[in-house]
Amino acid sequence: MTRRIPALVVCVAAVIALVVPLFLPDLSFYIQMILAAVIVTGLSLFMGYAGQASLGHGAFVAVGALTVAVMTVRLGLPPLLALICAPILAAVFAYIVGLPLLRLRGHYLAFGTLALLLIVQAVIATVPFFGGGLGIFGVPPLGVGDAVISGQLPYVYLSLAVLALALLISRNVIRSRFGRGVRALAGSESAAASSGVPVLRTKLAVFALSAAFAGLAGGIMAFFTPYVSSESFPVATSIAYIIMAVIGGLGSLWGGVIGAVLVSLLVQVLNAVSNQPGLPATTGPVLQYGAYALVLILALLFIPKGIVPTIAQAMRRRRDRRADAAAPTDVAVEPWASVQG
């Protein structure tokens, strides 16, 4: 509510997001950016609103991507069915692993989720049915019956639609009884429980929801790439999701989108730089990791709450000051019982 972004800004951003891909020669980068925004929006629900940590959100992207690859390539099931199952299976998976995992707190939870990602990678790499050492090639294009998506552009618009859906669901959930319970957990678990919030069940529900977003993004990725292997979900990418969430602003609806766009653009620029002739092949990764570290440190030093909350707070302060100037000063010392009954 107080973290609302003016509708005009959203409309302009939406138009830009829809028009830009028409002028880009290759949309791989763009689609990765949009899907990262979907994943980080979910991650921000879990980390920002519920106050939990996940270093291994790539695990749920993997489950979604693998759902699509296995169902279409291995089992020959319809692509659309596979895409619908991707977020559902990711959520179910999160719920099951969350039962033990979410009893951990703080650093332990962070390491637990990281371990989860490593386990998922190892399982994909060793079980041939899930791709084994080679991965699963030849995921068919998304479509219904004979109507099949061709080219990159439809995937971009599908991803944008999914992002809009993720934002809408997040907004509705945050501004609800359930969402208030989620946010209360981050403040004080004991006080939240005393207010009737079932602590573990609420954490599980948010975890599953954020995993569903990641799984859906992973499913689209599988169709787009169209290849899934154990190396499709590196730990560095999961770390990047967190950096995006922190820079954009944990606990803000739009923070995930802003963070994903900014960090993706930065990485893209660095890639362009490192691809200049005459530079060693290691320039790319070195620049990228260096940039992650630098950006994260700068953000934590100067805008620890992230971009969106910092701006929102400045706007709210200004409004409160104006309200204080307008209101009679005795409001502040109004006696406790004067408005009883």
């Binding site: 009884r177 359930f178 319970g181 403040g187 004080s188 207010s195 009737g196 919030v197 529900a205």
Partner: peptide, 23 residues
């Protein structure tokens, strides 16, 4: 308290013990 939330939202959380709607 729940520090990231407004005064009104803090109080609204209290209703979770007496209401139902889920995620």
């Amino acid at each position: 308290l729940f520090p990231e939330m407004s005064v009104l939202e803090n109080v609204m959380v209290g209703a979770n013990a007496a209401t139902r709607a889920g995620a």
